[in-house]
Design a protein around this nucleic acid. Sequence first.
DNA 1: TATAACTCCTGAAGGC
DNA 2: TGCCTTCAGGAGTTAT
Length: 288
Amino acid sequence: MPELPEVETIRAGLESGILGRTLTGVELYHPRVARRSENGEHGIHDLVGSTVHAVVRRGKYMWIDFGQPLVVHLGMSGQLLIHDGRAPRGPHTRAVLDFSGRQVSFVDQRTFGHLQRSTYLPGDGHPAGYGSERTEIPASVAHIARDLLDPWIHLRDISATTRRKRTEIKRVMLDQTVVSGLGNIYCDEALFRAGIHPRRKASGLSYISLETLWRHGQDVMRDALDQGGTSFDALYVNVNGASGYFDRSLNAYGRGGKPCLRCGTTMQKIEFMNRSSTFCPTCQPYSG
DNA sequence: TATAACTCCTGAAGGC
DNA sequence: TGCCTTCAGGAGTTAT
């Protein structure tokens, strides 16, 4: 599933492929692809003739800066694939952007992803995302917090926000308005590295524990980024169709019923927020 | 206002 | 072989 490292890998590939090029055509093949777009499909078609100034990312959101932003979210299964010449149209191709013969296909099996024409709002004076110095932020991304790899994030501030929450720590980690970029996989990994049970109350954790947790989150994502992201199947590939390798380094996610790599205790898998959560009951004791 | 639950969606995998 | 059920989960919407 695309989380921050996967989206950053795709952003970098997209930037190198289309920066400075002019959008010459748009084809949309599925009604859900533009469901959140301002002016629907017309809002996206109106960008034809515009030039790519940057490809920017905040958390799991990215946007192509055409002067106006085209926001891209990959959902659970979205892929962006670059082809020179006409792209082959597969059964899950939801849209194709044409840049004078170089085509970008938006492929999305589960249709949770989308393309969204948006407008810029004033930001906080610092670069709004990775990939551009521009401070304005797309209106549809304005509610998304800075991510853990953002140089303008302050761990002390997000730890303070976290301690005000009266819910479980993993819920807070998945809340993109507190800190963005973390999904289920990297939450489990960061919690495992920090030795914190996913159901611990956020308000019961110390500042030191929380800052340690966020630093582990940063480390996990940097490690994943170095390896091109996490792949379990064909649902995540970079813009060239290649898979990442970080799944070979996972210590928690997907290891329910298997021995903990640190202590040997059987890892537990529990239901959490309509999804799974895997942890070691010895290394990550529940208390509070 | 904060938190929790529900919903969207498709295809792989497993059971029968 | 074919049908049915379960599972995966990001994020917006709705309910409490």
